[in-house]
Nucleic acid binder design. Sequence first.
DNA 1: GACCCTTTGAAGAGC
DNA 2: GCTCTTCAAAGGGTC
Length: 581
Amino acid sequence: MPQLNGGGGDDLGANDEMISFKDEGEQEEKISENVSAERDLDDVKSSLVNESENNSSSSDSEQAERRPQTRPDSESYEKTRDYFSEALRRQQDGGFFKSPHYPGYPFLMIPDLTNPYLSNGSLSPSARTYLQMKWPLLDVPGSAGLKDSRSPTPGHLSNKVPVVQHAHHVHPLTPLITYSNEHFSPGTPPSHLSPEILDPKTGIPRTPHPSELSPYYPLSPGAVGSIAHPLSWLMPQQGQHMYSIPPGGFRHPYPALAMNPSMSSLVSSRFSPHMVTPPPHSLHQTGIPHPAIVSPAIKQEPSGDISPSMHAKSPVPAKKEEDKKPHIKKPLNAFMLYMKEMRAKVVAECTLKESAAINQILGRRWHSLSREEQAKYYELARKERQLHSQLYPGWSARDNYGKRKKRKRENKPDSKPEDFSIRSKKQCVQYLTSEKMCDSPASSHGSMLDSPATPSAALASPAAPAATHSEQAQPLSLTTKPEGRMQHHFSIPGKASGSTSSSSSSSSSSTPSSSSSQPTMSIPVGTSGSQSNTPILTRPIPFTSLHPSMLSPPSPFHQALHSHHALFQSQPLSLVTKPTE
DNA sequence: GACCCTTTGAAGAGC
DNA sequence: GCTCTTCAAAGGGTC
């Protein structure tokens, strides 16, 4: 696993060294396993047909193929069929996007960001992928042969997510671009985001034609002048900024970042002025408006009734000055990044609109992600934090405390934990009921096929934050203990979080070092989370029995599984006691 | 219009 | 070191 921070040596994140648990041999092995597994899955699916008739269209596309006459929703049928065929084609292609089991993630394969250059100086495929991830509108040309010429989509969308409607027309990758979507506004885009920013032939940056400019990232010309081109790190030889830099006009505040390609790219994307033309007070000290900076006028403050313009006009009291301070948002964690990206997809696949329900689905999908997939988000999040801390050295998460007052907070002290737990459960069930329409690949009792293979945060993210929370406390982690010892894990959040936390920490520390027995994964059944206070039931699952395709969320089959799981999830947790042999 | 809900993860405070 | 709290996103729902 490449070290994206290029050995920067920062200790902002834990050691993110990913422990590869799946080598190539295993991959091939799993392919063969998949054949037999699919037979079993067919059985499961057929049983699911009856169980999940009420499910969303996407969840039973497989059924639709079998019984198309039962699917009045022909559009959905076509959609899922295309989705399926596309996935099949990709699998057969074995091309650049081979590895992602879930087509929505091709852009997340970032194997070699620290060295984005090929030996000939051109951009490596992985780097291009990363660029496409970070700048979806940017068609990094590179060598033509490596470009996915099959893609029928305009170059700006490399992830061929079928029928994805991004909420508010926000690209799902915006978390990687900006902290605050609301800052987007149509306008003159920065030239550096032009799809043809590099000359396809020479690789030399050129001034884009106005017609090529993306309307995505507005930036005032004045601001542009002081910004290094986000791809400047791609052209070290040229060493030129895309834009003329007035003498002393641009001082990279963090030379280390400039030296680090990946970091530089982050600076140039999410933390750069691409998309924001914020009020003056939101400007970073470098003059670079940070997307994480939210104007009080935008990020409503209780007393934030003063518009930025008013701030500029009239003197304000000291307290107002305090309020005027830009609200620097917390860097997004891995799950938040994932959520931002996948939300639109879930919304498109489901008919759900309530974020609470969607988030539940996303939460399960998150758990169902393979470790590699999660690790990418952890890595991104780690870099986000790293960059954030470097951009705002003095910033503390505490600074945002109390920014918004919650009614909930007032009630919390009064409510007993038990009451809260019950309340959460009810609400959870409520959402889970709606979730039946489009569920995640979470587990069901019985076969491991329907279990959410959840790599632990500690494993998926080495950085990962040692076990501190419910998640870490839950035995999601890959363990190498003998299966016999891992029959059931009952974790009762709240109290249990402590004990489990300690146990998880120990397990996480010893996790990779596997003992003799077959690795198993403890799978949470039910919801987790410290806030939900919902008991977690877990059971071990032979890790080698888990095929990535089982973990990848939205294939038609998985959706069927999701449906199955939804049915299961709606049942009382007490039902989840079936031991795994 | 502010807050709730829901998710996971990160960070800080308190013990 | 552990536990608890808060916030990050998102948008429909609630008050």
